[in-house]
Design a protein around this nucleic acid. Structure first.
Lengths: 154, 154
DNA sequence: TTTTCTGCAAACGATTTGCATACAC
DNA sequence: GTGTATGCAAATCGTTTGCAGAAAA
């Protein structure tokens, strides 16, 4: 199935857009395409996306990129990330609604961001819910430290 | 002992400053005092601190506040926090170096920030260290959801 | 044809910085 | 005295917004 090999294809985009009263435009299409076609270069900022567009001879304006990222995030197609480097970053939302997403290991030296797929926070969340009555929808975990490479040169 | 009742007194400030080649100034003293004297109003932004200063008839400039906060953070006297509300926030560093700090529960509706004192991440950190070779220095955990009060009105 | 979208440039808010003066050491 | 700190205003950076024209539906 095409759906399983490409979770957020353009048909999905069109559907999600019209469901919420938005229109399908070549700009939105192209911006989403960048995320789909760059699965390796995660964590792209608006500026990153804009630069790739300009490399591709695309005439999409920066404001349009910002607006598209906010929208795709609202539609659940992209997830917004914050690594404390002063700009919002995004990645394709590949998690199904029932699972939480991966954690990030941020190297204090080389600023590299490593993904870590594991979620051991269920116990902690249950604990919080019972103790404080807080209903947890999502969580964000960042670990700061030194990656293998930087440990050597420390 | 005065030290136990006031972890970061002015003597500590003076010492930490001179240790690193900085000077003790009335401005830095006064800014730290605000954090010490407002233990309840945590998570203050530069603007918050500046407003309190102006209430106190203090003539300290906003740029000085920013510079002091950055410095006090660097000296380990303050801890910088980020709740995704577009500005850096700070609180007194009351944790000893061997323990991690508390977590934050951020209400998606009223934006309230609740502190949660518990640290069950040791297992997870150990897991990450062994699996990825990443040396963890610190972590930051944020839980997003709905506080008791907002759950009712949802 | 109606409404939303785009691109540009201007506005924005948080933070930083250059510079002359003032102050801590 | 020497070097750092301050205060102000201007600069910066990421992001948002107003508006007139362009393009989906």
């Amino acid at each position: 199935m095409s759906e399983s090999h490409n979770l957020f294809g353009l048909q999905d985009l069109r559907k999600k857009l019209s469901e919420h009263g938005y229109k399908m435009t070549p700009q939105r299409k192209e911006i989403l395409k960048i995320f789909v076609e760059h699965p390796d270069s995660h964590h792209m900022s608006a500026e990153d996306v804009y630069n790739i567009l300009r490399e591709n001879e695309s005439e999409i304006g920066l404001a349009t990129v910002y607006r598209a990222l906010v929208l795709l995030n609202k539609l659940g197609i992209l997830v917004q990330l914050d690594f404390g480097d002063g700009c919002a970053r995004y990645e394709l939302n590949t998690t199904d609604p029932n699972t939480h997403h991966h954690h990030h290991l941020i190297c204090l030296k080389c600023k590299k961001v490593i993904e870590f797929e594991e979620d051991l926070l269920e116990d902690l969340e249950y604990d919080i819910a019972t103790k404080s009555g807080f209903e947890i929808i999502n969580h964000e975990v960042k670990f700061f430290g030194y990656c293998k490479e930087c440990q050597a040169q420390k």
